[in-house]
């Protein structure tokens, strides 16, 4: 296990190692949903919640079930099943408990199962050898970083909608250029901490 303060990991995951802008994960839903600020908030919060919970769950499953059984090679399958099952469960629970929350968050939950950032966060935490607290901090931080990026992007895209963008570049093209510029801006943070 590496000796890094969980708070440093949290900070690094949000700013210097933003999962979207430096690891390119979760691009599909990022490009699809970032047209509206409100929807972006919804998806952002759903990602924060699911990512924190699934990194914790997957860490426990990996070290208490897969490693003792010698089944580490099956981690891809197990992780994806854990994520899918968890999302399904949350969807059912939210629908039963709070219909208001379900209307706001529920539609985004199925999208999240295929969001590569969720799976990516779980894989990174194992590869980088985080312990439990570090993993939860990383999962939460990566979620916040993703949400921050998508909300900022949605704000910019709402302005862009009224500008005159060259036709072939409209939509995804301009969104990618904005993402590139945002990624440049986030690189400015990278001098602050050097943590993977």
């Amino acid at each position: 296990m590496v000796e890094i303060n969980p708070f440093v990991i949290l900070f690094a995951a949000i700013f210097t190692n933003n999962i979207l802008l430096s690891n390119y994960l979760g691009m599909c839903s990022f490009l699809a949903v970032s047209r509206e600020v409100k929807a972006s908030y919804g998806l952002g919060f759903a990602v924060i919640f699911v990512m924190t919970a699934t990194t914790a769950l997957n860490w426990l499953v990996y070290f208490y079930m897969l490693v003792p059984a010698g089944l580490e090679h099956f981690w891809y399958i197990i992780f994806i099943v854990v994520i899918a099952a968890f999302v399904q469960l949350v969807e059912i629970l939210i629908e039963k408990i709070s219909p208001v929350l379900y209307i706001n968050l529920g539609i985004f939950l199925p999208l999240i199962t295929v969001n590569c950032a969720i799976m990516g966060a779980s894989l990174f935490m194992i590869i980088r050898g985080y312990d439990f607290l570090q993993s939860v901090a990383y999962g939460f931080g990566a979620g916040v970083g993703w949400a921050l990026a998508i909300v900022a992007m949605a704000g910019i895209r709402q302005r862009i909608a009224r500008s005159n963008v060259p036709a072939p570049l409209a939509g995804a093209g301009i969104a990618l250029i904005i993402a590139g510029i945002m990624s440049l801006a986030f690189m400015g943070f990278s001098g602050m901490i050097q943590v993977q």
Partner: peptide, 12 residues
């Protein structure tokens, strides 16, 4: 990181 975003945008 930014290079890939720009390249993909230019390609599209």
């Amino acid at each position: 990181a930014p290079g890939a975003f720009f390249m993909l945008a230019i390609l599209i």
